[in-house]
């Protein structure tokens, strides 16, 4: 309980620090709007060319809302590699390790504090744009609730994977390249731009085996189809959370051992 209170305080402090640079947040939001406007035009053309009212089971408005959901997740995703790389390179890790708080859990709390307010902002601004352009608000309260409920384990999965990769900085000093590749894999196989239902069959099968779609596609599809396949989504997320959590624990343990032996 004490540990949770501590982590909540860290998350809250970092959530406040998100607004320390309002200009940067405005730029992020503008970037989201630009992406959505571009995809709005592309999907409009696609729906028109195919004379389809629905693609992959989604109307045009739902498709755009799906995009809002995926972009909101990706644009608010935590960036561990820079922070941990800095800690390792500058020796700031020494400061962190002399505090009575677990280093990986501290990083989780920081990520939650920074990501969650950004996600809510992105979701609100993106949905407003879709409503403005299409004239309807395709998202329901149930959709938002299902999205946010599925986002929580999705965030933990994303954080566990990318924290584990970023912790390789303990040996590599810079894990930027490895996390860059992984983030692109999440974008492609996680369903950032296109729902898995529209993937070619082979690619769709590969994507469904991997946990990446549980971080993006899983929650985003809840916006359009609230609570559809929800229990199995949560179960898959829980299983992968155990696997990636274990991987994270292993890498952290090995990294700290290396640090204990060879120094920061």
């Amino acid at each position: 309980m004490k540990e949770l209170r501590k982590l909540a305080a860290v998350a809250l402090a970092y959530a406040r620090s998100v607004w320390a640079y309002p200009g940067a947040e405005v730029l992020r939001t503008i970037f989201l709007l630009v992406i959505l406007v571009v995809f709005l035009s592309l999907w409009r053309t696609t729906y028109g060319a195919m004379h389809a009212a629905r693609l992959g089971g989604l109307s045009l408005a739902q498709m755009l809302e799906y995009l809002v959901g995926t972009e909101a997740i990706i644009l608010s995703a935590p960036r561990f590699a820079e922070r941990i790389g800095d800690d390792v390179r500058t020796g700031g890790l020494a400061v962190q390790l002399t505090r009575p708080v677990s280093y990986p859990l501290f990083q989780f709390a920081v990520a939650a504090g920074e990501s969650w307010p950004r996600l809510l902002l992105n979701l609100a601004v993106g949905s407003a744009l879709v409503a403005l352009v299409t004239g309807t608000l395709p998202v329901s309260a149930a959709g938002v609730a299902a999205y946010l409920l599925a986002y929580l384990p999705a965030f933990l999965l994303y954080a566990a994977l990318f924290l584990a990769l970023a912790l390789t900085s303990f040996w590599l000093e810079d894990a930027w390249a490895i996390t860059f590749v992984a983030s692109r894999m999440v974008m492609i196989l996680g369903g950032l731009l296109v729902p898995l239902a529209l993937f070619p069959p082979v690619l769709s099968r590969i994507a469904r085996i991997l946990p990446l779609q549980l971080m993006v596609y899983g929650p985003a599809r809840q916006l359009a189809r609230p609570f559809a396949g929800f229990p199995s989504l949560l179960l898959d997320q829980a299983i992968w959370l155990l696997i990636l959590g274990g991987l994270l624990w292993l890498i952290y343990r090995k990294g700290v051992q290396a640090l204990h032996v060879q120094g920061g």
Partner: peptide
């Protein structure tokens, strides 16, 4: 001295 324990943005 060369590493801060404070949060720069807060």
């Amino acid at each position: 001295g060369q590493r801060s324990q404070l949060w720069f943005h807060l």
